[in-house]
Computed example of a mutant assay.
Amino acid sequence: MVNLVSGGLDSTLVGVLAHEEGLHTHPLFIDYGQHSAEMEWETCQQVHAHLELSTPVKMDLSGFGRVIHSGLTSDELNVKEDAFTPGRNLLFLLVGSAYAYQVGASNISIGLLAERFSLFPDQRNEFIEKAESAIEVALSRRIRVLTPLAEFSKADVLKLAQDKGITGTYSCHVGGSEPCGNCIACLEFDFEKGG
């Protein structure tokens, strides 16, 4: 299984759950030109080593963010109000599936939470189903898109991650050494913690 990873809590939890199930994973980190790429990649490597998960591979697609602007890729846009990055999750699924094809895996996983918490169209079940179909046509091979956290809220993720001893992840969209406290990821995390 190719596990799309970011160094954040959701994708790390997916990796831990897969490891516990005895699944062989190929963690794939995608630098799509996001502000936080450097911190995410550094954290991703550290967390995977600490938890004795498979070593992640980095794919550099940073040119995407230089052309496709959002609050996650451009200093000229607001990190919270302009967070939607058009095509990002489709890009993730496409390159994740291409990597799965290359390494002989039949599944990829993405850490999307329950649809009722979705903010953007590319976080919903309809998108996943249609992307999976398009990828099968494009590759002439079925690569299943797994969303193991599809029934989870962020509070559920936080509790299970705590139970599994997962620490040291990074989820801020700004990319500083300390969480900004203002982006969607930080606000979601603080809200669910009761902060």
Rank of each mutant, 00 (worst) to 15 (best):
K80L: 11
L53I: 02
E42M: 14
S74P: 04
G111H: 12
R116L: 08
L112R: 09
V67E: 10
N89Y: 00
T25F: 04
S36N: 06
S70A: 08
G33C: 09
H24K: 15
P121L: 05
S97L: 09
K80I: 00
I30A: 05
E20D: 11
C44M: 04
R66L: 12
S97M: 09
E126Q: 07
S36I: 00
H19Q: 13
A83I: 02
L90S: 12
L72R: 00
Q123Y: 03
V16M: 14
T25A: 11
I110Q: 00
L9S: 02
S54Q: 08
A98H: 04
E81A: 14
I68T: 12
P27G: 04
T55A: 10
E129W: 05
L94S: 12
I128P: 01
T85L: 15
G15H: 08
S97P: 09
Q102H: 11
L90N: 04
S36Y: 01
I108R: 06
L72H: 00
S106A: 14
N125K: 12
G33F: 03
Y101H: 13
T12H: 08
A114P: 02
Q123H: 03
D60A: 06
A105Y: 11
D31E: 07
I30K: 08
L51W: 06
G96S: 13
Q102V: 01
Q123C: 15
H24E: 15
L119R: 12
L13I: 13
S109V: 10
Q45G: 02
E76A: 15
E126Y: 01
Q123T: 15
H19W: 06
I68E: 03
E42D: 14
V14A: 12
A98F: 05
H26T: 13
Q102G: 01
S70V: 00
T12I: 01
S70G: 08
N107V: 08
H35P: 05
A49E: 14
E40K: 04
